[in-house]
């Protein structure tokens, strides 16, 4: 076991430049797809929270069971073995947790709080900015956290269509039947996911208000 880790360490050191590049690619994939996903799914979530429990949310809940690798292969005919395909697959992957949590976050704000706000003469915009959004933030953030962790893990798939990221070492290790190389990808991915999870849950706790 220790031998294995040692071999992993040596391999990473001997490929240091490549490793940092792969890490940067990985983070870039995550950041880009997370951003696009947030820009699209947060407004949809806010909009859908105002209606009855909607088709939108149910559709996305169902969508969750489609494996991201399937989405990836569906994108390939249109965008080829490209970074675009990878980003599309990852963006779609991040939709459900962000959308569902955003919907729930705004939906579960107590009607009494809204009524008090309207009754005191706040405009719709003021209520949204000063009351609803601050109260919705912790639950929304929980969705973003889930999405980010999923993205960090799933961005590994990008390497299967040759667009880099830490999955590079997973693919290579697999091809060469060398677990130590595979771990050069797998361990940082796991640590990264763990780190992001802990950081965001810390932030979430910090902004959480007790109701």
């Amino acid at each position: 076991m220790l031998d294995l880790l040692h071999a992993t360490w040596l391999y990473a050191q001997s490929h240091a430049a490549e490793f940092w590049g792969a890490l940067a690619d990985h983070l870039l994939l995550v950041a880009v797809s997370l951003s696009i996903s947030m820009v699209i799914s947060i407004p949809i979530g806010i909009w859908s929270s105002r209606g009855q429990r909607t088709v939108v949310i149910d559709a996305f809940s169902t969508f969750r069971v489609v494996p991201s690798i399937a989405v990836l292969f569906l994108a390939i005919p249109f965008f080829g073995l490209s970074r675009t395909s990878a980003i599309i697959a990852l963006t779609l992957l991040a939709f459900p947790p962000i959308l569902i949590n955003t919907d729930a976050a705004y939906r579960t704000i107590s009607p009494a709080i809204r009524e008090a706000a309207v009754g005191m003469g706040m405009t719709a915009g003021q209520i949204w900015r000063r009351v609803e959004t601050p109260l919705a933030l912790p639950v929304m953030l929980a969705g973003i956290r889930t999405a980010t962790v999923e993205l960090v893990a799933s961005a590994t798939l990008a390497a299967f269509i040759g667009v880099g990221g830490l999955g590079l070492y997973v693919v290579r290790g697999f091809a060469l039947y060398d677990i130590s190389i595979l771990l050069v990808g797998a361990i940082p991915v796991a640590l990264l996911a763990l780190f992001i999870d802990l950081t965001l849950s810390g932030v979430q706790r910090h902004i959480q208000v007790s109701v």
Partner: peptide, 21 residues
């Protein structure tokens, strides 16, 4: 208009409706 009117009228509801944040 309604918001102007409401700012001139105090309003207390049963569930209090204080803003928890």
């Amino acid at each position: 208009d309604a918001t102007t009117l409401r700012r001139q009228i105090g309003y207390v509801i049963q569930q209090i409706g204080l803003f928890p944040h």
